[in-house]
């Protein structure tokens, strides 16, 4: 790890063609290597559900699902995602346009105030449900729990697993209740 510097001699270009399937629709884009997924979603594809909060992977407002896993889209260079399947909050509804059960639960529980963090909270919660089902432990899971079995999500598990999604309004109690409604 030497000091940060620039060799300035790279012969290849600074753009690449990238194919992303976003909410089921393939898109082939000619992208500057510097573009992150969040900006491509919002600016190129008009999918403004994913929000830019901190832009440094600290707030979770940009959370989307890439190949089924929740990630911070602000830290993912789009060029690295060629061939990947991306789901954003806009893609969580079913074919008939019905909201995802988590979206419905957030509405029923009034699990937001300003709503800015909500798409990230919901995408993150979708990821949480899949991770728990796959047996992924968390910091608060009893280490003696047998590997490979689904982890039951209580309020402490939900709070820990959603800790990467900040809510400046402090709607956490209702966010936890909304997630509890769908498990």
């Amino acid at each position: 790890m030497g000091a940060a510097h620039d060799d300035g001699t790279r012969a290849t270009g600074h753009h690449s063609e990238v194919t992303l399937t976003v909410n089921g629709t393939p898109h082939t884009l000619h992208l500057d290597h510097r573009r992150v997924l969040l900006d491509v979603l919002r600016e190129d594809l008009g999918l403004t559900g994913s929000k830019k909060g901190c832009d440094h992977g600290q707030c979770g407002a940009c959370t989307a699902l890439v190949d089924g896993r929740r990630v911070n889209s602000c830290l993912l260079l789009a060029v690295t995602l060629d061939g990947c399947e991306v789901i954003t909050v806009e893609g969580l509804t079913d074919g008939a346009g019905e909201p995802h059960p988590l979206q419905r639960a957030f509405l029923d529980r009034d699990a937001f105030q300003c709503g800015y963090c909500t798409p990230g909270q919901i995408c993150s919660a979708v990821g949480v449900l899949a991770e728990a089902e796959a047996g992924h432990p968390s910091h608060v899971t009893d280490p003696a729990t047998a590997p490979g079995r689904p982890v039951a999500l209580d309020a402490a598990e939900i709070r820990e697993r959603l800790s990467g999604n900040l809510c400046r309004c402090g709607a956490y109690p209702r966010i936890v209740e909304a997630v509890e409604d769908v498990i």
């Binding site: 959370t63 911070n72 993912l76 910091h139 899971t141 280490p143 990467g164």
Partner: peptide, 29 residues
Amino acid sequence: LAAHPLVRDRYPVLSQALLAGASGQLRNA
């Protein structure tokens, strides 16, 4: 790595350390 049965069974300190770091989104990447 944190969820892998070999790690959870044999090296619990490693699984616990990984799960104490960052967030679910960051650990996925």
